[in-house]
Design a protein around this nucleic acid. Structure first.
Lengths: 339, 339
DNA sequence: TCCTGGCACTCCATTGCCTCGAGTGCCAAT
DNA sequence: ATTGGCACTCGAGGCAATGGAGTGCCAGGA
């Protein structure tokens, strides 16, 4: 009873504050939400909530705003995942199904997500380590310089230049291509090192030096530098939430331009089937301590191909954001998994 | 004499204003720059300059600030291109020479340019239409679905899925690959349509339907959708110049996220050997009317491979920006042209 | 035991007012 | 043509007064 209503009050505070961006007072609360009690009672509850650290007042004689802890409780226990409107579902579908290749899928998704949530959206390209090799192509640039092109089943293409120890003709190139493809086609990238480990020993002696070079290049491309990438969109939305600009916006923009930062972020929250919410101080990176992150993984089957999510002010429509993130992840996962 | 000093005054105003971001008055001007005349004289000159529209005052009893026309005159006649410091040259070189592939070159350049100028930097990927085809690869996904991979001499890779009319085996795929490569390798992309026009007529009858499909896909990839791309960096720098945020920053950020807008912008100013400066109202797009653009083309030989530049407040260090843009364009041009 | 109305108190935001000073324009003198 | 002097303008910043939203607390009622 008592507990029950207090939580109602907290929920009401969060919802109002998210909409208005202004500290919410007891009177307005009692009026706008049908709590069935008087402002004075609400005040008592608020007092208790503040005691427990769920809300705070910017200064005496102002209304209350939720703390990180308050948002956390709200997300965990007080809100579901707001279902998307029919129009939104349609938008997702029509927006994504025109995509022509991987790049296009990612770019469309990230813009879509930014639009749906009105936040900054982040979409990670499918991890190389989760993909399989579909084909390896070798192109001769000069007799001693070969271009290695690696095509994965998610549509990513990686390329590296390899300098082979001695000039090779097209015949040799063809054989090298054959050997590599025989060993690697269909393999998961994580398994690639094992697959090529003793490849060179088993090969024809005259191919070995070249093969060794190529294998080294492949390894470097795959293991040493996984070349993960992310796409970003909706930075303009940061100006919406009337951040205290100079102090917050700049470091945030800087952080968002760092691929490394984004990759770390996504890497921490790319569980499939779970939409992770990080609120304010819960974030591990300083630059994001004044923001919230709603993210999840996408992909088919057991392991995530990649992650995606949104970054915005703590004062965020969590149910809406979670719904959008989940929906987009599902579509993207289907699209890239099926391909 | 008279004319001469007036221009000195204008130059001094621009330089001071760029540094301080505050309207500059006659007294400070006469003191800081050795004009050898009294503030009163400077006032007369300023009055004349204002009459002619080169400077203006935000309100009575404030100092003067340059107008677009004033900046224009400054750029055209009053300033050279500030030479880069030794450290800056070194930075460019060491920053760019570690690049491993095209993507990396572009991403490094754009960040470099943003860092050097402390503005928003834009770098266009080499235009497909200016590149040549180095190799075409066909990979079987299923017997009736082929993946076409197109590799250009600038290192760009384009891919498309093609559905052929009937299942094909590896032998056929090999022949198709041979025919396409024979016809297209080494061709400029703009010449590709001519090169493949009657290709199918000359081919073996059983290959024709497949070939037709593939050619259609190639054409679509190259002509119909040139798939131009740009990279962006340094948006955080926008917060430096103390724009009046809410009104200016948001539409600007939105515009900068639009590939289309950026492509249009770069397309207009990608002359080789000329650093183009667009000041405020001179820009053709509304969102950029309150900014200045300094840009140029890069590439080797006659025609530009692409363009790059910076976007910033009108109150910009033009000589510095022009120098940085020119230098980076040169390096990028060499890197991509030589490859 | 819990809820409610009343009341005194706090403190921010707004407004109006004032002063200060940087900067201008003009004019007479050199 | 240049200069020094002078009156004028107008925004920025400081200060006090006001209003109002919101709180905390308490005594009375279900």
């Amino acid at each position: 009873m008592l507990e029950e209503r207090r939580l109602d009050v907290l929920r009401a505070i969060v919802e109002d504050f998210v909409l208005s961006n202004e500290p919410v007072g007891s009177k307005a609360l009692a009026e706008r939400h049908q709590l069935g009690v008087s402002p004075a009672t609400v005040r008592n509850d608020m007092s208790a909530l503040e005691e427990e650290g769920y809300i705070t007042q910017p200064h005496t004689s102002a209304g209350r705003i939720p703390t990180d802890k308050g948002y956390r409780l709200f997300v965990d226990r007080l809100s579901g995942v707001k279902p998307l409107s029919r129009a939104e579902r349609r938008a997702i579908q029509s927006f994504l199904e025109g995509a022509i290749d991987l790049d296009d899928v990612v770019r469309r998704s990230v813009r879509l997500l930014a639009q749906l949530t009105r936040q900054v959206a982040v979409v990670q390209y499918p991890s190389l380590s989760c993909s399989s090799i579909r084909h390896i192509e070798i192109v001769t640039i000069t007799p001693a310089r070969l271009l290695l092109v690696l095509i994965t089943d998610t549509g990513r293409v990686e390329q590296r230049v390899a300098e082979v120890p001695a000039p090779v003709d097209d015949l040799i190139v063809g054989e090298l291509r054959g050997v590599l493809n025989a060993a690697l086609n269909g393999r998961r990238l994580v398994d690639a090192p094992d697959a090529v480990a003793d490849l060179s020993d088993a090969a024809r002696p005259d191919l070995r030096p070249h093969l060794n070079t190529l294998i080294a290049v492949v390894m470097e491309a795959l293991v040493d530098k996984p070349e993960e990438r992310v796409a970003l969109a909706g930075t303009a939305n940061l100006t919406l939430s009337a951040f205290d600009f100079a102090d917050t916006l700049r470091p945030l923009l800087e952080a968002l331009e760092e691929q490394v930062v984004l990759l770390k972020l996504i890497g921490e929250v790319r569980d499939l089937d779970t939409v992770t919410v990080r609120i304010g101080q819960e974030n591990s990176m300083d630059a994001l301590r004044s923001t919230s992150v709603v993210a999840t993984g996408y992909g088919r089957g057991a392991s995530a191909l990649g992650g995606l999510g949104v970054v915005g002010p703590r004062r965020m429509d969590y149910p809406g954001a979670m719904a959008a993130v989940r929906a987009v992840a599902k579509y993207v996962g289907d699209l890239l998994g099926a391909d």
